[in-house]
Write a protein that binds this DNA or RNA. Structure first.
Lengths: 337, 337
DNA sequence: TAAGTTAACGAAAACGATTAAGACGATAAT
DNA sequence: ATTATCGTCTTAATCGTTTTCGTTAACTTA
């Protein structure tokens, strides 16, 4: 690999001159600059990120920490959407992204923070992890700039999907369509789940609609089988709900299968409502009635926030930003009134 | 950040001794080792990957190059599946992965190869790109160890999904169910497309089944709208096909919409066949009849091959490995006989 | 006792870059 | 004529490691 030294001896100047010529410093003569740059190009010079980072203390590399309970990794629709737009935005700003490995199995492995320090990431984005995992907390509390997705810590910038608004819109829509017997199969305990569940309860209370205990069930996110099972339980009740909310679109399909197997039609006999707005759901009939989370905006804002935290920490606020999504009116909700 | 130097002065030994102690060299006294290691742990020492890589010429970081025509990025099911298992496997071997940015817009941007050299990747995995893009070719022809997914170059290790076997199995299955009027909406020109298309034609020729010109159409991968349009064209033909093959599962849903809008039922009036085996398709009714590509195995093998190429180039063969998938019998194919 | 071994550690160079400080002519100001 | 100013370029230190040779003292061996 050709280095500054090679170019220097080729051009008969010092290494410093080459460095400054390539970085367009002002104290190098104009024609010397073009001579050096020409030589650099011809010799196929590519700077060495490692060497550069040692001097500058900046790697232009950010770490990505992600892991969901189902371990679906990159095949997780919501996260893949966020990460894709995040990636595009940071790349525009000249950063690369590297995953912080989340293989917790090995005994002597590095912690998340150690891994981040080892690679000297300029910043880190965290999503979908167990946010109260001590290792995650350790990372968040470190001096590395951090942006989290969908979870609020005290001293960390967070980009939040509008779970409250989303659930609120869904409930409004469903109630306005005349439903009162509404069940909710919610995801496992997490900040996001709580926001949605509390909002669900609050809204219905505001509407003066009483939801019986047995209409509220829990099933993990993205678990079609769990949703299937819970749906069967709901269908067995003496007073069947007219509409079922699910943790996410993926799980909804599990529920829909249970409904179909019971010989019921959607939405004629029972309505279903998802959450996420996964792409494929737009193309499948019946189209899901769901709340589309704005993954593009979430990722883009996370990227912009993180870069700001890295590059101008003095003038950048730690803040919580909420990103609105939108209600998708599909074909799975029946109008009862 | 605490460095070897800090530990050295803390322990009253030289930097060299600390380095060797931590790397378990044999010429350091046993109790000196424990003393140094204890101090390192207490002081929160984390090695600096950049400094290490400068001396060793190894970064333990591999590059990922990926881009599909639709620019779906990480939300591309097939690629996300491959990458997820690839990531897991290389992490086991102590490597991290970093994306080679594919933003082709900027004028002064680095080429793929320049980016890879800049980061000094130990190896690179390439998938879903335009394989005849000069920049991709340049990267492949460099001295960096490369593994490609689903595309054969002369001197490069490749992991191939069994497109031939998959298409072959699908045709067998469809023909054995009594279909003879079979249409194929194939994806855009690519090595993968050619393999499938040639196999489609060859198999039907072997069966002595004549496929009229107008049964073969082209529509991009993962393009539901294109598939929708082409399907409408097929449905307008005087002799309608009894079964339509699609480029992939995603596109299939676009076609299914066209069919439904024409008032036709699947599979009673017309059968459809996908390709990919995306996860969600297992949970949606009707279940797609499709060929499930083994993305887990593809990613794992790609990782193992790449690590072997990096770590023991002398004893590792350049080879093409084909990974079998399996036929998923869904509910979208009608038995005609 | 003299010479050879061995175990344990250190000095220093090197990887490839950045940058503060200095050097050296040439020109402008006093 | 002397000093100041300026434009260009070099010297040298430094970032945090690894690794090749020494070096030193203790211990064997003849």
């Amino acid at each position: 690999m050709v280095s500054l030294k090679d170019i220097a001896s080729e051009c008969g100047v010092s290494i410093a001159t080459v460095s400054k010529a390539l970085n367009d410093h002002s104290d190098i003569g104009a024609e010397t600059k073009v001579r050096i740059r020409k030589a650099a190009k011809e010799m196929g010079y590519v700077p060495n990120a490692a060497a550069k980072s040692m001097k500058t203390n900046r790697t232009h590399n950010v770490g990505v920490l992600f892991m969901d309970e189902a371990n679906s990794g990159l095949t997780h629709d919501f996260f893949a959407g966020v990460l894709e737009s995040f990636k595009r935005e940071v790349e525009k700003e000249g950063y690369d992204i590297t995953f912080i490995s989340n293989d917790r199995s090995k005994p002597g492995r590095a912690s998340y923070l150690e891994h981040a320090r080892y690679r000297r990431f300029d910043g880190v984005i965290i999503a979908n992890v167990h946010f109260d995992d001590p290792e995650v907390v350790e990372l968040v509390k470190s001096n590395i700039p951090v942006v989290t997705i969908d979870h609020i810590y005290n001293e960390t910038t967070t980009i939040l999907s509008d779970n409250v608004g989303g659930m609120s819109d869904l409930v409004d829509f469903v109630v306005q369509n005349g439903h009162t017997k509404i069940a909710y199969i919610h995801g496992a305990e997490s900040a996001t789940t709580n926001l949605r569940l509390v909002t669900f309860n609050r809204k219905l209370e505001e509407y003066g609609i009483e939801i019986p205990e047995e209409y509220i069930k829990e099933s993990p996110y993205r678990d079609t089988h769990g949703a299937y099972e819970k749906t069967l339980e709901l269908l067995k009740l003496r007073t069947r709900p007219t509409c079922i909310f699910y943790p996410d679109d993926y799980a909804t399909y599990g529920g829909m299968r249970a409904i179909a197997e019971r010989g019921l039609r959607i939405p004629e006999d029972i309505s279903v409502v998802g959450f996420d707005g996964i792409k494929v759901a737009r193309h499948i009939r019946p189209r899901l009635t769901t709340y589309r989370q704005n993954t593009e905006e979430l990722g883009t804002l996370a990227a912009k926030s993180l870069v700001a935290l890295i590059e101008k920490p003095k003038t950048t606020l730690i803040q919580q930003i909420t990103v609105k999504g939108w209600l998708l009116e599909g074909d799975t909700l029946k109008k009862l009134n």
